[in-house]
Design a binder for these strands. Structure first.
Length: 572
DNA sequence: AGAGGTGCCTCTGAAGATACTCCTATCTT
């Protein structure tokens, strides 16, 4: 049976929930939560590790006991401790924790004093007024429970970064126009450029915070006010997205921005570091005793605790603090570092613009080369090109190259067939300067067969780079199951490359896979996969993901000048 | 429950705002 890391993490989080409701040792609970987080961020499959008898205790936060439980879960699909806890507490009880305002203590009270085990039971008890008399509850909390279950508000949705951007822009314009708003910034996972965000975190500096809060909750798209104090407020917008606002004095803006940008794990780790240096940190500044020594800018805050500036995309407590202390932070790639784009479509297949239009637009955006990679014929839904169509396109490229002042590369996004062969005859593949291999079919193959299929495709001497290596669509379609580490190692051996697809719905490779490729010395190509002239805008999302993966200019293939690029992708 | 220093023990993830009920639990990064 196939067990993903996320499945193991779910079991650990369930155990942590149950232990928390029981009131177990908080450090034990944290150990399970940390292990779950480690597993979710891990680029390797622990099931594979167990099969290969790798030492799980080398993973951070995994000791002998948890290693044993991981083995148990990936081999048996279940965990004795969880089953034992389920005999003490009903399995459904974790549902109750999803209701906003209910944590472990109150869930325990609901269970012990009213035998409430499910959301349905909770709803009925609340409707019958049976909650308000439990110590710690009252009429208000009873009503809030009813409302939360009615609006299904319990499960918090996540939004793709690009969609969050469009929701944020109107609100941002409204707030920026207010006379009492001095500085304003969207912080949180949005600023860290996570591929999805759960809510918007906005930081404002103002000398009249209550007034700003008042104006904030009067924004026309606000449909619900979750909390409203003198310095912070939480609302839900018409689109369903939650927005948290924090208003501070100008002198504290940097500290507040830093705090609100997170991540939580990063903040905690940095505060521990500050503590060790005899300093106290909060969203109002860095303090030595009662003396505020820094707060106005993020840079000042970093300097006060003895660290260089750490870019938001790195703030995930994934080694950035140690790297900062050692002076070994990466010099993260920037959009302007890109010299070209190696994946783009035209009207010849499923794009919307002509070859000339795409070329002109790429040139306008400062790129010095663009690979034209329309689909190959077996992807009929995209009107893929056959040998004849490609030949015609190659002639057209020759003409434009003589005329336009941007180098167009002759390429194709070639279907990788189920058996790993490529969807074009060798005599055509040999005439192409770049072959972008892609999987668009048979997503459900087993991990072993899917991996083998891709490895075989890479073995073709003409293969240049693997497009959207996981095939996922964020929040819509799971990635196909492949051994990415093996693919990366194979790319290194074969001298080919992997794509980081910049479309905000794809963004694969993921950040952790980027790190893996970097560690193995495999260059990544950050490509737009543009289907129209507007899609070159997406490159910034790809760059953001690359930055989250610690990539530097030297780690990215299409930062090379055209001459070096051609030599890097040329076949032996 | 893990990690680290020693052979079993100690320490381990910060800090503040808000809502709500009665003193703290929950939520946020």
């Amino acid at each position: 049976m196939l067990i993903h890391n996320a499945d193991v993490a779910i079991v650990f989080n369930q155990i942590a929930d149950l232990l928390e409701i029981k009131g177990d040792n908080p450090f034990r609970i944290r150990a399970y939560r940390n292990a779950a987080r480690t597993l979710n961020a891990l680029a390797f499959s622990v099931q594979t590790m167990v099969a290969e008898k790798s030492d799980l205790t080398e993973l951070p936060g995994i000791g002998i006991d948890l290693a044993g439980k991981i083995s148990e879960i990936v081999t048996t699909g279940t965990c004795a401790l969880r089953e034992q806890l389920h005999r003490q507490l009903p399995p459904s009880i974790h549902e109750l924790l999803t209701v906003p305002g209910l944590g472990p203590k109150r869930v325990k009270a609901l269970y012990q004093q009213r035998n409430i085990q499910t959301l349905d039971q909770l709803f009925n008890s609340a409707r019958n007024g049976q909650i308000r008399n439990i110590p710690g509850f009252g009429i208000r909390s009873e009503q809030r429970i009813l409302e939360a279950i009615r609006t299904q508000q319990s499960k918090k949705k996540r939004y793709r970064l690009d969609l969050a951007e469009s929701v944020a822009s109107a609100l941002l314009r409204y707030l920026q126009a207010l006379p009492d708003v001095k500085k304003i910034e969207i912080a949180g996972s949005f600023r860290r450029r996570q591929e999805t965000v759960g809510d918007l975190d906005i930081v404002i500096s103002s000398s009249r915070p209550s007034l700003v809060i008042q104006q904030f909750i009067q924004f026309e798209d606000v449909t619900q006010i979750l909390a409203q104090g003198t310095t912070r407020a939480s609302v839900v917008l018409r689109q369903g997205m939650q927005v948290d606002l924090r208003v501070v004095a100008s002198v504290s803006f940097g500290a507040a921005l830093y705090y609100f940008t997170g991540s939580k794990a990063h903040n905690i780790a940095v505060r521990v570091l500050a503590q060790k240096r005899g300093l106290k940190m909060n969203e109002y500044g860095v303090f030595s005793g009662t003396q505020r020594i820094a707060a106005e800018t993020e840079l000042a805050v970093f300097q006060a605790i003895g660290l260089p500036y750490i870019e938001p995309e790195l703030r995930e407590n994934r080694g950035e603090i140690a790297a900062a202390q050692a002076g070994k932070l990466p010099q993260l790639i920037q959009l302007a570092d890109l010299t070209g784009d190696l994946h783009a479509h035209t009207k010849a297949s499923d794009g919307r613009n002509s070859l000339r239009e795409m070329a002109m637009e790429a040139k306008k955006r400062g790129l010095s080369y663009l690979a034209i990679t329309d689909h190959s014929s077996s992807l009929t839904i995209a009107h893929g090109l056959d040998a004849e169509g490609l030949t015609r396109q190659m002639d057209e490229i020759d003409q434009l190259n003589a005329e336009l002042g941007i180098k167009l590369l002759k390429g194709c996004e070639v279907e990788i067939n189920e058996d790993g062969s490529l969807d074009l005859p060798d005599n055509i593949l040999e005439r192409l300067e770049i072959v972008v291999g892609a999987v668009h079919s048979k997503f459900g193959l087993s991990r072993e067969r899917q991996t083998k299929r891709i490895l075989r495709a890479m073995d073709h001497p003409c293969f240049t780079l693997l497009a959207h290596p996981s095939g996922r669509l964020i929040l819509e379609r799971e990635p196909y199951d492949v051994d990415m580490h093996q693919i990366i190692l194979h790319a290194r051996q074969r001298g080919c490359f992997l794509e980081l697809n910049a479309q905000p719905s794809r963004l694969d490779l993921t950040d952790t896979h980027c790190m893996m490729a970097k560690n193995e010395g495999v260059l990544i190509s950050v490509n737009s996969d543009a289907h129209s002239i507007f899609d070159f805008d997406d490159l910034r999302f790809g760059i953001a993901q690359a930055r989250r993966g610690w990539l530097e200019k030297k780690d990215v293939l299409n930062t090379l000048p055209i001459k070096q690029l051609l030599s890097a992708i040329s076949r032996p």
